[in-house]
């Protein structure tokens, strides 16, 4: 029964990786369950098993305890059934792994997708060309009508954006689970909070098809809004996004510090 100990250690490690890390992650980013990606999990488990075997096999007794059950299984005439079961299980495992590896899948190929790719210098939208750098929200300056603009943006939001991005802007609108990549969560500090208004304008105006190649292979389903909304509507909805979430847009540091 000494062999149980290393098995338990590996199992504990596995559970920690499988549930512990996602749990911590879910506390940091509520609403997500950040699993350890398979690619990393495989390496973790490999070295976890190797490390555990090392810890339990350096001494002669430990080594015997680890290896003895396996030796017994393979040489003890009385354990023929168990032996055959193990051999079959190993074969079946190989078959399973091979099957998983070769079976057709609809998943996009695993590539390193950039969530916030570098924006282009200029954007053609609403039959105009915008130089993104230095592009400002024309309604930001007008402090007097701030509330009015935000309210108008809210109308635009709930008529167009709400269905995917949701009423609380968590990216969980009625249709959210049909998309890959998921609709952006605007409350999260990782989205609009770290972007300039001009970047957000670009992303809304040209949508998924406007993403550069770094944003592939999963082109987002975001519509090309400049074909459906006016420039003013886009700017107003941006006002609404920031006001509602309480974030403030990132300001590019002027070139001269």
């Amino acid at each position: 029964m000494k062999m149980l100990k290393p098995v338990l250690v590996v199992l504990t490690g596995y559970l920690l990786l499988k549930f512990g890390i996602p749990f911590i992650g879910s506390q940091l980013h509520p609403g997500t369950w950040p699993v350890v990606p398979t690619s990393v999990m495989k390496m973790y488990m490999f070295f976890l098993i190797v490390g555990t075997l090392m810890i339990y096999s350096f001494s002669e007794e430990g080594y015997a305890a680890v290896i003895q059950p396996a030796v017994n299984l393979y040489v003890d005439p009385a354990r023929g059934t168990a032996r055959m079961a193990v051999i079959l299980a190993v074969g079946a495992l190989g078959a399973y792994v091979t099957y998983q590896y070769v079976k057709p899948t609809f998943d996009a190929p695993v590539e390193l997708r950039s969530i916030h790719p570098a924006p282009p210098s200029s954007v053609k939208a609403c039959v105009k060309t915008y130089q993104l750098q230095g592009l400002k929200n024309p309604f930001r300056e007008d402090k007097a009508s701030f509330a009015k603009h935000v309210e108008e943006g809210g109308v635009v939001y709930f008529q167009n954006c709400y269905f995917c991005h949701g009423d609380r802007m968590l990216g969980k609108g009625p249709y959210y689970d049909g998309f890959n990549p998921l609709p952006a969560n605007f409350v999260d500090v990782g989205t609009i909070a770290q972007l300039t208004e001009s970047f957000v304008f670009w992303r809304i105006a040209t949508g998924g098809p406007g993403l550069p190649s770094e944003g592939t292979p999963w082109v987002s389903a975001m519509p090309v809004w400049h074909e459906l909304l006016t420039e003013e509507q886009v700017w107003k909805v941006i006002m609404f996004l920031y006001d509602y979430t309480g974030h403030s847009p990132r300001v590019t540091a002027p070139v001269h510090h």
């Binding site: 990606p37 990393v40 990549p181 999260d188 999963w218």
Partner: peptide, 29 residues
């Protein structure tokens, strides 16, 4: 310590994992 040492900065994730993580940035790893 070793596991931490070789944790890659950029994670290779399947699309399902990306939806679970909620983006390419993993809060823990």
């Amino acid at each position: 310590a070793f596991l931490i040492w070789f944790t890659p900065h950029t994670l290779i994730m399947s699309s399902w994992e990306l939806t679970q993580v909620g983006g390419a940035h993993h809060p823990v790893l």
